[in-house]
Amino acid sequence: MRYQQDQALPEEGDLVMATVQEVFPQGAYVTLDEYDGLLGFLHVSEIATGWIRNIEHYVRPKQKVVLKVIRVNRARREVDLSLRQVTNEERRLKVMEVKRAEKANAFLRIIRERCSSMSDDEFDRCVSLIKDEYPMLYDMFEDVARKGTKVLEKLNLPKEIVDAIVDISSKIPLPKVEVGGIMEITCSRSDGIDVIKDVLTSVEGNKHNADVSITYLGAPKYRLVISAENFKVAEKALNSILQSVQKGIEKKGGTFKFTREESRKGVT
């Protein structure tokens, strides 16, 4: 098994992983790793902006590069590509996507070995069911790691495959992001300290699909950190908590100010 697109040719605008085959002054020929080694052409004008003295300063034989598809001739099966139009963020995300796909396929090979009593046809049928639900196969392993076998129930997979998936999923690192900042909270009431404590305790105990940590730094500052599986979930929790704290404090006559800190990525 290998990671490849279902379609025979990429679409204009797609990002592809390619292997450089031949380099010459006018450009480079590459093969597209995800399309069974389909040949593509990278013209020198699409390698970098400005004049290029030595093309091998940018691409060289056997190098893996992320390229953008800029033209496709389906009749002739010709693909023109660009390196200079790929942003750093696009490159990072594409490399991550390919690495995750490679890991997922390696996991499938392990599962196949563990399910040796199953016929090839039956195993391939199960893989097709999984891919229908999870086109990006690695997402399934992360989903199982987070939520357990309930995410597989509707697929009606054989127990031996489910057991193998669960075992592998339990060992993969889960992505985590952290967002937060410094809250400055005051309340001049005689019971101001208790008011602040009650407000912060209430939001810390609520469920936000994220881990919430509030640390006292010394009056009037408190550090708020939200840990979640992705930025969308983390930001939603952060906004909800900030609104609750501000509303709760100001309702009691206090003041509230929030200063954002730099977000972080990591794994659990």
Rank of each mutant, 00 (worst) to 15 (best):
K197L: 12
S169H: 04
G192I: 00
S202Q: 14
D198H: 12
K176R: 14
E178C: 11
S188M: 10
I196F: 06
S190K: 11
V179N: 00
D167V: 05
G180Y: 08
I196V: 15
K176S: 12
K176F: 01
D191P: 06
T186Q: 00
I196A: 04
I182E: 00
K171E: 15
G181V: 02
G180E: 04
K176H: 05
V199C: 10
K197P: 07
R189F: 00
T186A: 00
I182V: 12
I193D: 13
L200W: 05
D194E: 15
K171R: 13
D191M: 09
I193W: 11
E184Y: 13
G180L: 01
T186H: 10
C187Y: 01
T201V: 14
D191N: 15
E184C: 07
I185G: 08
I193E: 15
V199W: 07
T186G: 09
L200A: 04
S190W: 12
G180M: 03
D194P: 02
D194I: 10
I172P: 01
D194T: 14
S188C: 07
S169L: 06
L200Y: 09
E178G: 11
K171S: 14
D198E: 15
V179W: 07
S170E: 10
S202F: 11
D198W: 10
I172H: 06
V177F: 09
D167M: 10
S190T: 14
L174C: 01
T186V: 00
T201A: 13
I172C: 02
R189D: 11
S202K: 13
G181P: 05
L174D: 00
S190D: 15
I193S: 15
S170W: 04
L174W: 08
L174H: 07
V195H: 03
S170H: 08
I168F: 06
T201N: 13
I182L: 07
D194N: 13
G181L: 00
I185L: 11
I182D: 05
I168W: 03
K176T: 12
I196R: 00
V179R: 02
K171W: 01
P175Y: 01
G192A: 09
